[in-house]
Design a protein around this nucleic acid. Structure first.
Lengths: 352, 352
DNA sequence: ACCACTAATGTACACGCGTACATTTTCGCA
DNA sequence: TGCGAAAATGTACGCGTGTACATTAGTGGT
């Protein structure tokens, strides 16, 4: 007798109304007599009725899903878990508030980008891309989205010359502040350990670094520019060379483009007899959790990752604040502020 | 003319076949003449047809989603991101391989547990719960799932007396190994900083600790048992008292139930003039990334979180290996092995 | 050439909801 | 009391697939 799950029809019968009325009551649509509403709700309650999300989505032509795409290589931790988990949290909490579910999709680097298909399959109503890198295939895939007018948003990565919706932080200012801070501590031979230029982040960091030096009459010294890949290991690998230069007094401070590289560097420097914070100032970027717990504590630049994730969702779902558009280029230019967090690794440093 | 997305009907018309044939070709169902298949595929290709996942899900009565539930408090990082991101990776990669999408759901602690509703709404076909804690409401919600025969799986948490499907690691052995290792280093006053007993993990850790002591003729000293909440801060907070006991020579080693507490403790001990690895041996648990980068490097117990996530998915989706059932209790008892990772924080230690 | 059987394809409908439109009820007001 | 308008409810159908069943085409054996 008791066959399968309860459906709208049974609720309608029990309440003595039509299916449409049940639907209207449950969706709060149209005028309903109070007594009818109560009868329907009671019937639904009594039968423990739960509408089928599948049927709803189909009827509404909306999945109710917010896609989140994360680049991923199993067991290889190129990215900071801090970085992603903060952004993801911001996305998740905000999406939930807006009544959306979060569809998480890992994307391996060699996998073909076909974001458009995701939308056309109606798996997601909107999509956020994390950790994208500049490249022709990526640009193509994103251009397609733009052209087909699918709602998407990049986080913390800009594609120069494209009008992709993006949530960014002001890394030029952040890097400027970090560099200026080091200069303020008396340093004038500031090495820069940057990440790959496929990330707009890297270009921005360099820009801020360069400007801060220029504003203080210091010229960029190509010999003390280094490149890693944002991994801890790459910081560690850069250590020997940087340690040598510190000993030769060709470097008196290091600005690392993220904390992970800074931490690898910190460890590596120490193994080469350099005491960070004493023999050379050190500052990282991201203000990850670990920065507070190293010895010496690591100066850094705090980036509102959580808020960036939340902002990306609001931009896509909520229709609160319209984007800030650059009148010249027509591009969206809002950037969340970052904040310098000076700690022991760059304070009380006396250059030789 | 070009109205909305391409549908099956148009593909059928272009290929000169019925809609059913298109469906059969695309799903690889039933016998199809090779020439027909080619015509259909070409038509689909030419029209750039993509089936509606919404309609497919509705027709199949399957969402194709694997739910993942994570306890969450915005901006409060009670849990290790390492822990979750590892498990999540294992889940994501395996689910993808099985053709499932991952529906990530944050659950705030005060939120009412209603996992059953999730299934009855057909939002997910199966579900994995992470970070659950023992408690009556949780048990009730899970019992409901069991009774309604929804496929779900817990990871790294056991509910004593319940037959919930679970993927666990052998933390009794791991803790035994950690404690025995400390004893092997010559320690016999081993403090234990455990987590809350709402986690079966904590009980298992204590069990292993206790057994290792017993097997070596050492009795448990209640005075050197401490409780934190697995956060770094709680380790830090326990530091003063533990530092005092070390100075009094009432403690010569500390086993912390996870790395985060061990790291907080490490920092705190040092601030109280105790040098971990010299004045007292220290070992953590989880073998998180940071363990390799502390000074001294932190001994720990490696837990295959990634594999646990993958195993949970296989258990739910793949039908490869049947569960290992305890013939007595009827409960599932498979536990993945863990591995002791001795490092400087507990090696070459000479007790006084 | 005929039959029996299988392969290949078509026809028809269910799935459970949202909602446009039709219909009935209610209600204010003359 | 009657009447028009608004409120409340019902009827009917579309959404795009998967698939059971009906139908037709093909094949091999006699």
């Amino acid at each position: 007798m008791e066959e399968g799950p309860i459906r709208r029809k049974e609720v309608a019968k029990l309440a003595g109304v039509s299916e449409a009325t049940v639907s209207r009551v449950l969706n709060g649509v149209g005028p309903i007599r109070e007594e009818t509403r109560k009868r329907v709700l009671e019937a639904a309650e009594q039968l423990n009725y739960v509408p089928s999300a599948l049927a709803q989505q189909f009827a509404r032509k909306k999945s109710g899903n917010l896609g989140v795409i994360i680049p991923f290589v199993p067991k290889v931790h190129l990215f900071s878990t801090y970085y992603f988990s903060e952004i993801l949290s911001g996305i998740g909490v905000t999406a939930k508030k807006e009544g959306y579910d979060m569809l998480l999709m890992f994307l391996s680097p060699e996998e073909k980008r076909n974001y458009s298909r995701l939308f056309r399959m109606q798996k997601v109503d909107a999509c956020i891309m994390l950790g994208t890198q500049d490249g022709e295939e990526e640009r193509q895939a994103l251009r397609e989205l733009l052209q087909e007018e699918h709602p998407f948003c990049l986080v913390n990565q800009r594609f120069e010359g494209e009008a992709f919706p993006t949530i960014e932080a002001d890394h030029v200012s952040g890097s400027y502040a970090a560099t200026a801070h080091l200069i303020g501590q008396g340093c004038d031979r500031i090495a820069f350990l940057n990440g790959p230029l496929t990330y707009s982040n890297s270009a921005d960091r360099y820009d801020g670094y360069r400007r801060a030096l220029a504003d203080n009459g210091i010229s960029v010294n190509q010999d003390i520019l280094f490149t890693g890949n944002y991994s801890r290991k790459s910081g560690y690998i850069a250590a020997p060379e940087i340690a040598g230069a510190i000993k030769d007094q060709r470097i008196d401070a290091v600005f690392a483009a993220n904390d992970r590289m800074a931490l690898g560097l910190l460890q590596g420097l120490r193994e080469h007899g350099i005491e960070p914070g004493r023999d050379a100032a050190l500052i990282g970027y991201d203000d990850s959790e670990e920065a507070r717990y190293t010895d010496p504590q690591l100066s850094s630049v705090s980036v509102p990752f959580y808020e960036m994730g939340a902002a990306a969702v609001s931009k896509l779902i909520g229709q609160e604040k319209p984007a800030i558009i650059d009148t010249e280029t027509g591009f969206n230019v809002e950037k969340l502020p970052v904040r310098l967090i000076p700690r022991a690794s760059s304070l009380r440093y006396k250059p030789n």
